[in-house]
Design a binder for these strands. Structure first.
Lengths: 242, 242
DNA sequence: CGTCAGATTGACGTAAGTCAAAGTAGGTGG
DNA sequence: CCACCTACTTTGACTTACGTCAATCTGACG
């Protein structure tokens, strides 16, 4: 029923650090099962103390946070290979929610066994910290985007990062990839209004930099787009896979 | 010369989880020394691969990031007990810089021994992850601030968080604490212009919510300020101390 | 065919940015 | 001890990027 870790489709993706046979077997011991969810399903809820941690096997989701006045901030977009639930796993409480945007398959780990990672396999523990550091790094960049980039720069930046992420996961064919989010999601991610986000996307399309419609993102000149985004195009570093 | 860990002044602060004797002794083994710096000194540089990690023993600093066009984003303010350099320690590269704003004393750990944390003391490894998760949580809140809060709300939010942090560290006396940052720092932290930040602070003072001048922050009605900030006043959870 | 979620467009409003000048205070050298 | 920096804060006048409102359009779906 459940895929054996050694056959995990993610193992072969560029995005990830290779895993040793021994590591794969170790992970297998912790795999409690698989979870399959449909678009729109909440996976983890802000404020909850989830008993489980997940690695996204396939599909896309979104991580967001509600303010007390109902405003919504999208923290980031969740892609295959993302390890989710760490906050609840460590702090006992999620600071945000995670919801599926497409059909998703998740690898399930029990939090009760989380401690064993640290106890029995220090290098895997290190990898968890590694993931946390990557996340922190990315959030820092996002902060700089919301704080310092103009709308055009911000949208360009987001598209570049998403596209790069897609590339390392083999989701890009012919300069295009599926991107099943709404403009509202993007607006809430960048702290822009829906209308302005729409107009900004139109501008990028007009300038022949990127087009995003019908759930598909098309980027012909990544370099030029990155220029607009005030970013340099460095290859995203490989990340550990849990 | 160098303080023994068991006499570390931070051990007794409310902010932190109590450490066992055994843990303290373990940390002592890794303490490579102390670093003392004057205001304005850069401690870690964006893009660098620092050979050391630090725990802030005393003093305040700032964590910021430069865009390629020279814009500056302040990621957060660094307080005693903060563990800095994790990004370089794990990713081999800092995504931001850290600079002293007052005289600071730092506890120094060598990165070469970092791995031993994980290997020899899993619960300390877990604590590092814990810290990373707290950081991630906080950055998520900051994102929501930049993306969703108005200027008044954002400034109020920042002051509340700073004040709370100060409280757990015993830096608050008589509803006031020293806050040696500039309005430019605050502006860059919140993605606002210097002028607008200034005017926003004036508004909060006028409304009798908070005043910040002569390097000192005075808050008479924290509750009301939190109201304005659209946050609830929950006690910040205790954090591990490295 | 009606409904609904999402995308698009135009007119208009405003929070926040920019510019520019002046005020304040600590620090330094003559 | 004064004159002069320099860094920071404060204020007012003006500009603009982005938000809000409201209508229309599109396509999927039952």
């Amino acid at each position: 029923m459940t895929t054996q870790c050694r056959y995990c489709p993610l193992l072969r993706k560029d995005a990830f650090v290779r895993m040793s046979k021994e590591e794969i077997e170790f992970m297998q011991k912790f795999k409690a099962g698989e979870l399959t969810v449909e678009p729109g399903t909440p996976i983890l809820m802000q404020g909850s103390n989830a008993p489980q941690l997940f690695t996204v096997l396939s599909g896309l989701g979104i991580r967001d946070k509600m303010l007390e006045n109902g405003q919504r901030q999208v923290i980031n977009f969740v892609f295959p290979g993302d390890f989710i639930g760490l906050q609840a796993g460590v702090l006992g409480k999620m600071g945000h929610s995670i919801e599926a945007r497409t059909h998703m398959r998740l690898c399930v780990f029990n939090r009760s066994e989380f401690w064993n990672f640290f106890k029995n396999h220090p290098s895997r523990a290190f990898d968890i910290t590694w993931l946390a550091a990557i996340e922190e790094h990315f959030l820092g960049e996002t902060l700089a985007t919301l704080g310092q980039r103009t709308a055009v720069q911000a949208v360009a930046w987001a598209l570049v990062r998403i596209y790069q992420r897609g590339e390392t996961l083999g989701m890009v064919t012919n300069n295009q990839m599926e991107l099943p989010y709404t403009q509202r999601d993007m607006a809430d991610a960048l702290g822009l209004s829906l209308v302005h986000t729409n107009k900004t996307l139109a501008k990028l399309k007009e300038r022949q930099l990127a087009s995003w419609s019908d759930r598909t993102l098309r980027i012909s000149n990544l370099h030029a787009l990155a220029e607009v985004a005030v970013t340099s195009l460095t290859e995203p570093p490989k990340r550990p896979l849990m």
